[in-house]
Design a protein around this nucleic acid. Structure first.
Lengths: 267, 267
DNA sequence: ACCTGAACACCGTTCAAGT
DNA sequence: ACCTGAACACCGTTCAAGT
């Protein structure tokens, strides 16, 4: 963190002011690489152009020659992040469709959970280039194809995969946002009152359920993730069992109508 | 947007420099109220202290007398947002437990979807004070109690409610983040290429599923929300049907083991 | 006890150069 | 064609006053 470089040296001919770099000495790839290095240290949220200039040993404004706005740089980083993500979550066929999709969901989760920067760029900031998005689409197709092969209709396969995808991304994002808040809270020395107080008088059931000290309320931990994931997979399994003749599960028909009414009432 | 007020008037005795306010002329509640008004106009992300000072007709630094950091102000706003949210999503018993929980989930979703500021403060920024959190906890207890009454064990009720809660919050947050990106993207005149191109050659199934122009890939729309919600409710219904003797659904036992192995391998 | 402007260190971005 | 510092308009926050 040598931030104060040359601040008190004045503009004498001391020559340690940092040489002017030659023409081809930086390129977009170097900048992106340096940006990831810096993000690893300070986090995406604290990644700034002046900081990046310092990290690269480059005048801040030089970066603007290659990326006209910080947003453009972040987009380029997001595209690369997606390539990393797709590489880390290949489609791997297991014994059956259910295990395959189950594993895939967990691989996606683990990849994001183990790499906050991926999470911040791909899930929270989004904004993929169409070209990069195409990459992700290819992956999705393979997963859906395996569901169709297992006996789901194309539409059911699409819905099932979408549900799993939203579940993975949603729970990861909630967890990530929670982490961020914790970080900024204890950074400022605020309340370390992580586990919120459950009063057994007013909320006996919650007190009982959280008594083990393990469970937290409506948390996004692995067990919770697995639970809802299996709900979705169970549903798909029943769709396959009943065969392609009946559309929908039958069970959900009544509530689908209910939902439609509700949506109509709101619009 | 009278930003340039008095910039070129110089510090003459023109008296329009804004009078010094008297002692008790502002209080925390006014500031919070003004902050919400301003947030409604410019969004939580663009809410700044100087902007708020101008909006209130108050010197910026005056705000700091009542809120030592911007973060403190946002926390106070979040607490109030939670009260608004709890008021908007009361526990309402319907014909049966399933309809009750189904309605409750939809009410939560609609409340957040219809109020981005609530979403930004409560879901994305989080950081509730323990006191405010207590408010939410009371609501949760009632929902879980109704599930227990319907025949679920305390633990199953807790897990079911957690799954629903994560589902609601996760899908709302994904949707909100998506909106934010769209807003900042077309603000800068970037690609309006909203619907990403699906190539029927490489991804025939996706092309077919999205051919109607309605479906988008792994989106977080109402239909998708309803789908996974019913998966969770179906699961709970089966738990009730099989009675309290057998823990878990039986179906999920194998995959639970699988998951445990996976978790052990990673840690 | 409350309200205030000046000032500081940061940020993203533009401009008018330098080579 | 590329690299640069000075400068601008913003931001959050602190300080040393004013009343």
């Amino acid at each position: 963190m040598n931030v104060d470089g040359g601040a008190f040296v004045a503009k004498q001919a001391t020559t340690d002011k940092r040489q002017r770099r030659e023409r081809g000495s930086i390129n977009p790839d170097d900048i992106i690489k340096g940006a990831f290095e810096l993000a690893e240290e300070v986090g995406i949220d604290n990644l700034s152009m002046p900081l990046l200039g310092r990290h690269l040993g480059v005048g801040v404004t030089s970066i603007y020659w290659y990326f006209r706005k910080k947003d453009d740089l972040l987009s380029a980083m997001t595209d690369q992040a997606l390539r990393t993500y797709v590489f880390a979550t290949p489609y791997v066929a297991a014994d059956d469709w259910r295990e395959t999709l189950h594993n895939h969901a967990w691989t996606m989760r683990k990849t994001f959970m183990g790499n906050p920067i991926l999470c911040d760029l791909i899930l929270i900031r989004s904004a993929l280039s169409p070209k990069a998005a195409q990459l992700g689409v290819l992956e999705v197709e393979k997963s859906i194809a395996s569901l169709v092969e297992a006996g789901l209709s194309a539409e059911d396969a699409f819905e099932t995969y979408s549900a799993v995808s939203v579940h993975v991304r949603g729970s990861v994002v909630l967890q990530r946002l929670y982490e961020k808040n914790l970080a900024s809270a204890d950074g400022t020395g605020a309340q370390l009152d992580d586990r919120m107080a459950i009063d057994p008088e007013s909320t006996p059931l919650l007190a009982k359920a959280t008594a083990d000290g393990l469970h937290r309320i409506a948390t996004t931990d692995d067990a919770n993730f697995e639970y809802a994931l299996n709900c979705i997979l169970d549903h798909a399994e029943r769709l396959i069992a009943t065969g392609p003749k009946s559309k929908g599960s039958g069970k959900t028909t009544k509530s689908s109508v209910r939902q439609r009414n509700r949506a109509a009432a709101t619009n």
